[in-house]
């Protein structure tokens, strides 16, 4: 028990004074490192290891998403455009669709292409998605279908940032100002 309390104090203490300069939410130590097995835009099974070596941004959404997803993805695109060129090449955005019923490899491919070359679309079956979303303590759910078969999907609005080694570092919210996102992404890519 005492060891638990000590560990807690040390965690809080470290969390309390670690890097006050990050302008988005620092999640080092709070969340596990990048791991998944999903299907990419070409229909191939891919795992997280294949994406190490670059700063990785992870975002959950669906291509029929009316607002949050396109806004977030274009914001990320704008942020990377404002970074200097070398840093820009060190960044990749993984867009994980939690709506595999409508988002097949082809749909995902054309969707992410519209945003830029650094965007990679991924999806998987329910088991794979559940495992991944649970790992990052996010969830998703489906609304009721209307007469035309359209339905809403609730999903996380956060972007998780991992360093080149796949360690969880930052959580970017849609309320974070653009300057903060750019500054933190530049710093994160510079760490590698």
């Amino acid at each position: 028990m005492r060891r638990c309390i000590m560990a807690l104090f040390v965690t809080l203490w470290i969390a309390g004074c670690s890097d006050p300069d990050w302008q988005t939410k620092d999640i080092s130590g709070l969340m596990p490192s990048l791991a998944f097995e999903l299907i990419d835009e070409n229909g191939n099974t891919v795992s997280a290891d294949q994406f190490l070596g670059k700063t990785t941004l992870l975002f959950f959404g669906f291509t029929h998403c009316p607002d949050v997803c396109p806004t977030t993805l274009s914001r990320l695109d704008a942020a990377t455009q404002r970074m200097d060129e070398t840093a820009r090449d060190e960044i990749q955005v993984l867009f994980v669709s939690v709506d595999p019923r409508r988002d097949d490899a082809e749909t995902l491919d054309s969707y992410t292409d519209a945003f830029g070359p650094q965007f990679v679309g991924l999806t998987g079956d329910k088991a794979a998605l559940d495992k991944l979303t649970r790992r990052y303590r996010v969830t998703y759910g489906y609304g009721e279908e209307d007469s035309e078969g359209n339905y809403d999907v609730s999903h996380s609005s956060a972007v998780f940032a991992f360093n080149a080694q796949g360690e969880a570092r930052l959580l970017i919210r849609d309320s974070d100002p653009m300057e903060a996102v750019v500054a933190d992404l530049e710093r994160l890519t510079g760490e590698a």
Binding site: F60, T133, R137, V138, T139, Y140, G141, G143, D152, S154, H155, S156, S157, A158, L171, R173, S175
Partner: peptide, 12 residues
């Protein structure tokens, strides 16, 4: 408490 917004809700 925006964490539920950030992490997604159990249903919309």
């Amino acid at each position: 408490f925006d964490v539920y917004e950030v992490c997604g809700r159990a249903w919309p």
